[in-house]
Design a protein around this nucleic acid. Structure first.
Length: 356
DNA sequence: GGGCCCGCAGGG
DNA sequence: CCCTGCGGGCCC
């Protein structure tokens, strides 16, 4: 049997502990879910790489239409932004002096974008695109008017535009009475995601020095000290546990969970922080991290379950069964969708029946 | 795939 | 103005 590295062993242990804690809190009920539309065979592995908008100088007026035709899918009304996005020039300087095959680039972009949009339209609403203007204040508790649970964006910037989660990078956003929103994006390997409940790790304790002679040029770095609840973000989440204000949650493609979208980011509705505690984190030195247990509020549209064809994340190689981890797709045909007890117009749930 | 650099929105 | 932070692009 392939040995588990020390890191893996610790990870398994941490996950087991966190899971047990969720259970002890009574957060182990059944999750109402629906399946993510299966990916089209082959085609674009296209993670969120679709966001490259380097059409700085070579404007191609045909893009908009190409997009619509590509897969015979009608783009949603609200997506026709892009055109003159004020930020469209971003990075243009970086591209200057470089030879780029725009034709090829454009084609790639159109492909992945259209695929993402097509899929999204069958699963949930498509959010605003990057570069658009924000219409609502992200600094408020609860849902954002007009943004349904299940809404999907290519990038974090999109989530920010729709006021679901303001920071482009940070995972936690909030105020005095607790967090407004959090992003689950796999930043910490020992977090547990059961869909209706999950554990989350706070921030801080990472020197952003990162590399070489460019100190602080990285946006994330390995844990290098204990996290504490003195950290403002961590404090906010702890406060959430007291006020029990609802927290908006988005799941990102990097999250290792069956509830993570295969691409981009998805708004999964409101959760409440049930508990906040400190524990030894998953890092070489065993630095402490702030942990939180979240529970999903009832009467919301069902969560979407990832339908990954192949591309199992390595490990799953036999043995070590008893350990949890992320359940790597067990079911095949179980479709327990349409069970939402929420009444507010049973929309957001006519997925399935796609087939490539 | 990993390394590095980048800009940006939030909060102090 | 300073700093941070579960991104993202681009290079190798």
């Amino acid at each position: 049997m392939p040995q588990l590295s020390k890191y893996e062993l610790e990870r398994e242990a941490n996950i087991a502990k966190n899971k047990a804690l969720l259970e002890s809190l009574g957060l182990s009920g059944p999750t109402i879910e629906r399946k993510e539309a299966p990916r089209k065979k082959t085609k674009a592995k296209a993670a969120p790489t679709a966001s490259k908008k380097r059409k700085a100088d070579s404007e191609d007026p045909s893009e908009g239409t190409t997009l619509a035709e590509e897969d015979g899918e009608q783009p949603p009304a609200k997506t026709a932004k892009t055109e003159d996005a004020p930020g469209g020039v971003r990075r243009s300087s970086r591209n200057a002096g470089k030879s780029i095959d725009y034709k090829k680039e454009l084609k790639t972009e159109v492909r992945s974008l259209s695929y993402a949009k097509e899929r999204t339209l069958k699963e949930g609403k498509l959010g605003s695109e990057a570069g658009a203007k924000r219409k609502h204040n992200p600094k408020q508790y609860g849902s954002i008017p007009g943004v349904e649970v299940g809404t999907w964006w290519e990038t974090r910037e999109g989530c920010s535009v729709d006021a679901i989660h303001a920071p482009w990078v940070g995972g936690i956003s909030g105020g005095k009475d607790g967090a407004h929103s959090v992003a689950l994006s796999g930043g910490y390997d020992d977090d547990v995601d059961l869909g209706y409940a999950f554990t989350y790790t706070g921030s801080g304790g990472r020197d952003l020095k990162g590399t070489a002679n460019k100190p602080k040029n990285l946006r994330t770095a390995p844990q290098s000290s204990d996290q504490t609840f003195e950290n403002n973000f961590n404090k906010m989440l702890k406060r959430s546990a007291e006020t029990r204000k609802p927290v908006r949650v988005i799941r990102g493609y990097k999250l290792k969970s069956k509830y993570a979208p295969s691409e981009g980011y998805r708004y999964d509705g409101l959760y409440v922080v049930e508990k906040a505690w400190l524990e030894k984190g998953l890092n070489p030195k065993g630095y402490l991290v702030c942990k939180y247990a979240f529970k999903r509020l009832p009467n919301q549209p069902p969560l979407t379950v990832r339908a990954l064809n192949g591309e199992g994340s390595g490990e799953a190689s036999g043995d070590k069964e008893g350990s949890e981890g992320e359940e790597e797709e067990g079911e095949e045909e179980n479709e327990n969708e349409e069970e939402q007890k929420g009444e507010d117009g049973g929309d957001a749930t006519e997925a399935e029946a796609v087939e490539a």
